[in-house]
Nucleic acid binder design. Sequence first.
DNA 1: CTGAAAGCGCTTACAG
DNA 2: CTGAAAGCGCTTACAG
Lengths: 339, 339
Amino acid sequence: MAQLKVTSADVARVAGVSQSAVSRVFTPGASVSQKTKAKVHAAAEALGYRPNVLARAMVSGKSRIIGLVVAYLDNQFYPVALEHLSNALQAQGYHILIFTAPNSTDGIDKVMQDLMAYQVDGIIAASVSMGSDLAQRARQQGIPVVLFNRGQDGEGLSNVTSANVAGGAKVAEFLIAGGHRRIAHIAGWQGASTGRDRQAGFLGALEAAGRAPFAVIDGMYDRAAAIAATRSLFAAPEGPDAIFVGNDHMAFAVIDTLREMGRVVGQDVSVVGYDDVPMAAWGSYALTTLRQPVNRMVEATVALMLERIEGGPMPPAKIEIEGALIVRSSARIPEGWTQ
Amino acid sequence: MAQLKVTSADVARVAGVSQSAVSRVFTPGASVSQKTKAKVHAAAEALGYRPNVLARAMVSGKSRIIGLVVAYLDNQFYPVALEHLSNALQAQGYHILIFTAPNSTDGIDKVMQDLMAYQVDGIIAASVSMGSDLAQRARQQGIPVVLFNRGQDGEGLSNVTSANVAGGAKVAEFLIAGGHRRIAHIAGWQGASTGRDRQAGFLGALEAAGRAPFAVIDGMYDRAAAIAATRSLFAAPEGPDAIFVGNDHMAFAVIDTLREMGRVVGQDVSVVGYDDVPMAAWGSYALTTLRQPVNRMVEATVALMLERIEGGPMPPAKIEIEGALIVRSSARIPEGWTQ
DNA sequence: CTGAAAGCGCTTACAG
DNA sequence: CTGAAAGCGCTTACAG
């Protein structure tokens, strides 16, 4: 029967070997004889021994803990990403310590302090911006940081995003090909790189086609703001015939609001989102949207993180992953559209 | 400027005091003079010092880490709960280490081993069942466990749930009062206490009113299963005129499917869910549902956990929290219904 | 291959 | 109030 706390010394006593021998048996690659290994395993099993991760962390300097900073989870994209991240990291023997942060400079700063106090091996920040001062502090401590789904101006940090500029452009081209004349944009939060990049790509492609947007409003990645923006878009006698919304979470609000106003989505007004969260495929929304490939984004994030933790310092990498436009029925489909 | 790793000894040297003095300054309630305190704070600030949580954990036996086991996050109830839990715990100086677990006995078992290796101060298991063997092992190690949104047969663990039996009964009464004649139930997973309890309360109230259910099908808390169940319910010439669905996540699938089949939800067929996730309030679903008060459930969970961590061993507590029926338009509203 | 010993960064009696 | 010292449970050179 297991007792309150079994240590390597207990196992050593039972197995009749030294405490160092026990440690070696649990250290991959250490040299131990088959005989010792067997004795130790038997004793460990009998006592219910598992090496204390914290003690190991103290001496090895590796905690096998990754700090994850998230600002909010109401956008379904993040829970999905979190689940994938956790699974991928767990498969590599790491675990996620969660920190929720208000998206303010002060908040992030305090969180970073906490993170370091816990001796995390690396930091993944999702949907959170980070100044170059924090980037620098982390580097000084030798802690790799990767930004997930957020770019960073200037130097310093690795990050993984989808190809937001290209994605915004794709949406514009789709909407133009669909024959829309009055194309509006309820943008992602302009305080975030994703919101800005999607908007830039979108407006750029519109301009390249010699078109001006019907209107552009910052939706702040917020449901209430998106609802207000939709209402204001239709305040004038003639509203838009298409709206590109900066993410799916807001697009659902836009669709709800349009229906409330008696418009038929996909006929009277086309709506296109960004993310392709699971809900976008559900019947009541059937949202046409630019997919952010969560799986590949997570894989890239984990790969960047692991090579930095295990391989030592290396220059920051910026990875962009292309996503496809997923065509459903919330927006008019151009004649002969393939892909 | 901060260097790679600042220790209490570094601070002591700069402040001109002993290392123990530094430690005391960062230990709430320890006796230190104002003068020492000031010197140490100044030095710590200058060097960017923060006590190493892991080292503290080793000697104090308290890691200030709570292990959270979750099975899935696709049901929006869990991300919301996770965010609340993380915030509440963070406010108390604890953090959440995430473990994703397949909902199998083997999986949970391995996860529990990991959890203990990390020396967590407590374990919260959400949407996960746990055998009494695991409960016992945790108790032996002196680690408090509380089950969130899941009951447990037999002894052993503390748990927090909503009043599922009462909730199921409320739904039945509402549907009967609404004049429905053919009331079906797409149940929550019968492998989980929540699914069983809601069903028991529902069927009990039906029976008390002298009514038999139109049909009962296990929806497994799964979207695809709920869709299939809905289809099968309407395979016969005459389908149900009301469906109580075991959680909101499935209820959305039921509504999508009904619409696809050309039924008007709230008129042809009433649908009632369970949870009141944020999405239930959204225009396209407007789901009538039994609310699980996440806030209060989280508060209770944190309170149970903290009193067990800080107050030492105590008998398991079972807390049930009442939730209200939130009436929207997905189900016919009985004449003169108030509340 | 194996054991004795130092040390990771702290907290906590113990003297003073 | 303060400092010297032991010890938390490990890993990792270092001899043998």
